[in-house]
Each structure stands twice: as C-alpha cells, then as structure tokens.
C-alpha cells in the first residue's frame, strides 16, 4: 500500500505538483495519465524519494516521509522508502559496465547483504521466467531495447519492493513489443504485485490498471476505477483529454 497526501513540489520557480493525493491498495495497479508536463514523472520521482517534496506526506508500509522533516532525517527515510518502492525508469539506466547478471545482483548483494550465489540463482530464475535465458553474461549494450527493459524490470523486482513504479514503459517500444510488456505486467498483477504505471498511452493502460488517475497542471483532475474514468469521465478536462487521445 502506498499513499500520497497533499503533495506539493516546485522546481526552478515553477509549481509542478499542487496538492496531489491518492492511495493505491495492495495488489492493485494504478495508471497515471496526462499530457506531457502535467507532473506525472515528477510525481513518480517524488514517490521514489529521488526528489524532495515541498509539502505533504508519502506513506508506504511503516515508512512515513513528511516534507517537514529535516534534511538528514528526510534522506534517511527516503532511503528506507526506496527499499519498499522499486522503479523502472523510462530510459532504464542500466549499468553499462556490468553484465546483465551484475546489473541484477549488485543491489541485493551490496544493499541487502545477500549471498551472491543465492542472488544469482534467483536472478537466473527471474530471467528465465520472463524469457531471457542465456543473456546473463552479456552486456546491456548488446541487448535489444525490449530485452534491456526486461533486465531493468528484473533489477527492480529482485529487491522485492512493496510497490513497483513504471515510468512510460512503452515509450521506446514498437506496438508488438509493447504488447509483450503488457502481458508481462499482467503476470505481475496476477502474482499480486502493487504497481503504479505512468503512461501517455491509454490503450496500454486499458484493462491493465484497476484505477486510473488523470493529471493536469500538477493537480489530480479525476481518480476513479479504470472503466469509470475511461467510459464515464465526470470532469470536462478528462473528457477533453480522452477525446484527443483516442
């Protein structure tokens, strides 16, 4: 479970988030939609503790990140928060100097202090599970975009986060590959993962997300069950966006 309460964030004198609140129940998936510049990505970065919020509270399990905390304590809790919240970046940010296996095992070994052999075994299992057999010892630069993305997903997954964040998971993929990613995310849903997926593609989120949240100008315009928001939007701005997007 992750909850955002009245989040405010400004960057370079520009207000990016204006009082964003929502909650994602365990085992459910929230899709966040909105035009570029609506604050979707910044919101995700705040939820991962990469950006400091100006006001508001983020709660995930027993971690409570309050904007009013002093810097040192905020940084300490942001680190705890990141242990509960995994992130798959739009541009993946795989580590180019490490093999696929190295990318995946680096954090479990050095952050969680797990046994390397055990982590490697688990990594191999996860890779096999998502159809990436035999790439463990290759380097990211030799993989296709789709393969790289799956490596990034496994890298986040192996930390066993309570919540997985996806930033525009299909922006770099062709339609066939984007269908593959959707199938993969469906499997995660079936396994009971909690996810937040930011995407500009409504089609991708349709029958993937339980709930949808439409953002505009840093505000939550509408937050509802997916089919309700898609087929019976209440706010005129949501209606406008959906009409243009389709």
């Amino acid at each position: 479970m992750i909850r955002a309460l009245n989040l405010y964030k400004s960057k370079d004198g520009k207000q990016i988030l204006r009082g964003v609140s929502f909650e994602v129940a365990s085992g459910t998936t929230l899709g966040i939609i909105g035009a570029s510049g609506s604050g979707k990505t910044t919101l995700l970065r705040c939820l991962n503790g990469l950006e400091r919020i100006d006001r508001g509270v983020i709660e995930c399990g027993d971690v409570r990140l309050d904007a009013s905390l002093a810097d040192v304590e905020y940084a300490r809790r942001a680190k705890l928060l990141r242990r509960r919240v995994g992130m798959v970046f739009q541009h993946l940010h795989l580590f180019p100097h490490l093999s696929v296996l190295g990318n995946i095992t680096e954090a479990p070994v050095h952050v969680l202090g797990m046994q390397r052999s055990e982590v490697e075994r688990e990594a191999q299992e996860l890779l096999a599970e998502i159809g990436l057999q035999g790439v463990a010892h290759r380097y990211p630069e030799s993989l296709s975009g789709g393969e790289q993305q799956r490596v990034a997903i496994v890298r986040a997954l192996i930390m066993r986060p309570d919540v997985l964040l996806f930033d525009e998971p299909t922006s770099a993929l062709d339609p066939r590959r984007s269908a593959n990613v959707r199938a993969l995310l469906r499997r995660f849903i079936a396994q009971g993962h909690t996810m937040i997926v930011v995407s500009h593609s409504i089609r991708f989120l349709e029958d993937l997300a339980d709930h949808l949240l439409y953002m505009e100008g840093g505000e939550v315009v509408e937050h509802d069950r997916a089919e309700a928001l898609l087929y019976a939007p209440k706010d005129a701005r949501t209606q406008d966006f959906l009409r243009q997007a389709r």
Binding site: N48, G49, L50, K79, R82, R83, G86, M87, F89, H91, L92, H93, L94, F95, P96, H97, E106, A107, H110, V111, L112, R155, A156, M159
Partner: peptide, 30 residues
C-alpha cells in the same frame, strides 16, 4: 557519467557512497 546512473543506483536503495564506489567510479575510470 549520466545523472540517470546515480538515480538508478539510489532507486535500488544504494547510499551515495555505495553508488559512487560501485556504479559511478568504475564508469568514470573507463
């Protein structure tokens, strides 16, 4: 070394020192 490398390391729970030592420095050395 791109900023994204720092962020990816942070998002995996690494401390700045660990991220520097294991992720940033090896790439910078190359």
């Amino acid at each position: 070394v791109p900023r994204g490398q720092w962020e990816a390391a942070y998002s995996l729970g690494m401390s700045p020192a660990l991220a520097f030592r294991r992720i940033i420095l090896p790439q910078a050395l190359r």
